[in-house]
C-alpha cells in the first residue's frame, strides 16, 4: 500500500491506554506472584518441625553423597522409558486399529484386542511388574531374555499399551464420519482412509492425553524398584536406609521433574504449531 497513513490522535491515545493497561497487568501479576510464593515459603520455613525436616529431607551433604548412585540408577529409568515408549505407541495404535476393524476376517483379532485392554488395564501396574519380573525368568524359557529388567519392561509395555490403545481409540472415534465418507468417495480403501485421513487427525487430537500417559510412564519406571532392579528409587532407598536420611528420595524427585518438563513443553509447542497451521482465522 502506498498511502501514507499515520495513526490519528485518538489512536495514539488508545495505544497509550492499552500500553498502560498491559503495564498494569504485568505489575499486578508480578506483585501477586512474589507475595504468594514468599508467603508459601515463609509458611513452610516457619513451621515448628522445619529444622528436623530440613535435615532429614534437604540435607546438602547427603544430596551430594548420594548423587552418583542416584544418577547411575536413573539411567536405568531413562533407558526403560526410551525403549518402552515407542513400543507402547506401536502396540497401542495397533490394538486401537484392531478394535475399530470392521472386516469379518478380523473379528477374532478384535475380540483379542478388547480382551487385552480389559485385562491389562485392570491389573495394577506394580503387580504386573512383580509377576512378570519374578515369574517369567523362573520359567527358564529358551531363546528369550531372562533378566528381570527385560520382563519389568514388558510389564510396563503391556500395562501402558492398554491405556494408550484406549486413548487412540477415543481419538479415532472422535473423527467425524464425514471424513471417512469423503476419503472413501475419493476411492481410498478403508485402510487407506484410516492411514491417511483418520489416524493423522486422531493423533493430533489425542496428543495431550498421550503426553499425560508418557509422563505417567516416566514416573512408573520407578515401579521396577519393587522387582529388585537397581534404578534411581532403589539406589536412593538403599542409601537412605544405610544413612538414615531421606534426602536421596528428594534428589530422585528432582531427576524425574527435570525429565518430564521438557516433554511437556515440547507437546505444548507441537499443539500450538498444529493450531496455527490448521485453524487460521477460525475464531
Amino acid at each position: 500500500m502506498t498511502d501514507a497513513w499515520s495513526p490519528s490522535k485518538r489512536e495514539r491515545e488508545r495505544r497509550g491506554i492499552r500500553r498502560r493497561r498491559r503495564l498494569q497487568s504485568v505489575l499486578v501479576a508480578t506483585t501477586l506472584t512474589v507475595v504468594v510464593f514468599a508467603g508459601l515459603g515463609l509458611a513452610i520455613v516457619s513451621s515448628p518441625g522445619w529444622p528436623s525436616v530440613k535435615d532429614l529431607f534437604f540435607n546438602e551433604f547427603h544430596a551430594r553423597e548420594s548423587f552418583p548412585a542416584v544418577r547411575d540408577g536413573f539411567w536405568v529409568n531413562v533407558k526403560l522409558f526410551l525403549i518402552c515408549e515407542p513400543v507402547i505407541l506401536v502396540l497401542g495404535l495397533a490394538v486401537a486399529l484392531a478394535r475399530t476393524a470392521r472386516s469379518a476376517y478380523l473379528v477374532p483379532v478384535r475380540l483379542l484386542a478388547a480382551l487385552y485392554t480389559d485385562v491389562f488395564r485392570g491389573i495394577p501396574t506394580i503387580l504386573l511388574v512383580v509377576l512378570l519380573a519374578f515369574g517369567m525368568p523362573a520359567l527358564q524359557l529358551q531363546g528369550i531374555p531372562n533378566s528381570a529388567l527385560f520382563w519389568a519392561g514388558v510389564a510396563l509395555v503391556l500395562s501402558y499399551g492398554a491405556y494408550v490403545a484406549e486413548v487412540f481409540r477415543a481419538g479415532i472415534d472422535s473423527i467425524h464420519p464425514s471424513q471417512i465418507a469423503s476419503a472413501e468417495a475419493l476411492a481410498l480403501s478403508r485402510a487407506q482412509a484410516l492411514r491417511f485421513v483418520v489416524v493423522p487427525q486422531a493423533v493430533r487430537r489425542v496428543l495431550p492425553p498421550l503426553l499425560n500417559d508418557f509422563v505417567s510412564l516416566q514416573k512408573d519406571t520407578a515401579l521396577v524398584a519393587a522387582a529388585g532392579i537397581l534404578d534411581a528409587v532403589f539406589a536412593a532407598r538403599d542409601y537412605g536406609n544405610f544413612n538414615f536420611n531421606y534426602t536421596p528420595l528428594v534428589v530422585v524427585a528432582c531427576f524425574f521433574i527435570v525429565m518430564t518438563v521438557p516433554l511437556a513443553r515440547f507437546t505444548d509447542w507441537l499443539q500450538r504449531r498444529y493450531a496455527e497451521r490448521e485453524r487460521a482465522g477460525a475464531r
Binding site: W5, P7, S8, R10, E11, R14, I17, R18, R21, R283
Partner: peptide, 21 residues
C-alpha cells in the same frame, strides 16, 4: 469488537466503544 481496530472511532449511541476501557 471481535477485532481490535487499528484506527478510527466506533460510537454506539454516542459513546465510543472502540476505547480499550
Amino acid at each position: 469488537l471481535l477485532e481490535d481496530v487499528d484506527d478510527g472511532v466506533i460510537r454506539l449511541d454516542g459513546r465510543e466503544i472502540s476505547d480499550p476501557r
